[in-house]
Design a binder for these strands. Sequence first.
RNA 1: GGGUAGGUGGUCGAGUGGUUAAUGGCACCAGACUGUAAAUCUGGCGACGAGAGUCUACGAUGGUUCGAAUCCAUCCCUGCCCA
Length: 404
Amino acid sequence: MTDIIKELEDRGYIEQLTNEKEIRELFQKESVRFYIGIDPTADSMHIGHFVALMVASRMQKAGHRPIILMGGGTATIGDPSGRTDMRQMLTREQLDSNVESIRKQAEKFVSFEGDNAAIIVNNADWLLDLNYIDFMREIGTKFTISKMIAQECYKTRLETGLTFFEMGYLLLQSYDFLYLHDKYDCKLQIGGNDQWSNILGGVELIRKIGSDDSYGLTFKLLTTAEGKKMGKTAKGALWLNPERTSPYEFYQYWRNIGDTEVRKVLSLLTFLPMEEVDRLSSLKDEKINEAKKIAAFEITKLIHGEEEAIKAQKSAEALFENNGNVENMPTTKLENINISILDAIVLSGIAPSKGQAKTLIAQGGISLNDEKIEDITYSLSEKDFKDGYAILKKGKKVFHKLEK
RNA sequence: GGGUAGGUGGUCGAGUGGUUAAUGGCACCAGACUGUAAAUCUGGCGACGAGAGUCUACGAUGGUUCGAAUCCAUCCCUGCCCA
């Protein structure tokens, strides 16, 4: 079998491995069951999950068998690692519906057919029936508080009040691995590097119970050169669901990354061969824009399909390169076109309130059909909708189409 | 259970009776410069209102006061120390 671990390493995915040598051997010897956990805390995955899906996809292509674990049970707690506050708890109904939406997104990356078909499980199915006393006796005795609180990720929470409830998260995630190990012969858990301690918990739990064939692998989190998380926008996270983040906005995000991010993004988030990645990311000055275009196109294609990617790219080219017609930018249909410019800005979602819309106009950040709007009281009318639509622009890069 | 320190806007963190929609950092938005980049500089950053202005906000509820994030009472929550 191909050396998938080396492949992942070459592309820069891997951050840590529990037993490098053994994992390499294992993955060349047999088709390995591995799992990745996803917490259904929203009805869509965001870009943070993207790397995880890419890794899972690559491993499956190399002949291994993915398990997508939906954290329907653990999400009621929320992972305290690195967080400064306790997460909001979700109801069962919300979680169930989130699980369903996320499953659909995952299907774009892993195949549920063939010899090494992926499977999806939900830890609510086994966690919700656990008996507290039994659990504490069998699992709770295998963990020590001293070890847990020595971990960096718990330290901040420790100062502000880490509850027992949240501490249970580590035990439950570890138990998930044990459960999948016993029931599905799952040998590897993968996750973002923030999951390292939770993954180790599972590996150690399985060892303590008597098997030594469990491993952990973490991949790099997507960060910018300054170490900030990538994928954050003014509106919050960059979502994979087109209703939350339109393909056009999604494309634009990747089109606008910093030069220093190009290589990482191409390598981690596309399937382009490494020679191509190397070639593109070594382009200099404005030529590197070519690489950004390709990155944006490839990534959008993976998430939204080729058709949407082409549309997004065409829109972008039309807007930025020759001012042409635009079909695929975010659009708002107006019931009444005789509204004030402020209302139009708020309705289109370009700014969250009229106050901010005013600021934008005052600073010269708003234009309508390529004409800068300077009058706060400007009112839209028929003449602004020449071909049935008007183009509202914020700053240099945010476009929105208003249709009548 | 006892003692003690706290709870401020997206976040961190100032502010201890009026000039405070609340210093500053971060995040974010816009302008200038550029390559739809970065860095830098400038402006902005509760809501409503064209504006004057109005409303809502400093854990919660009451109170004192012409006036409270600031003082008092009660309650809720959290850290630390002791048990």
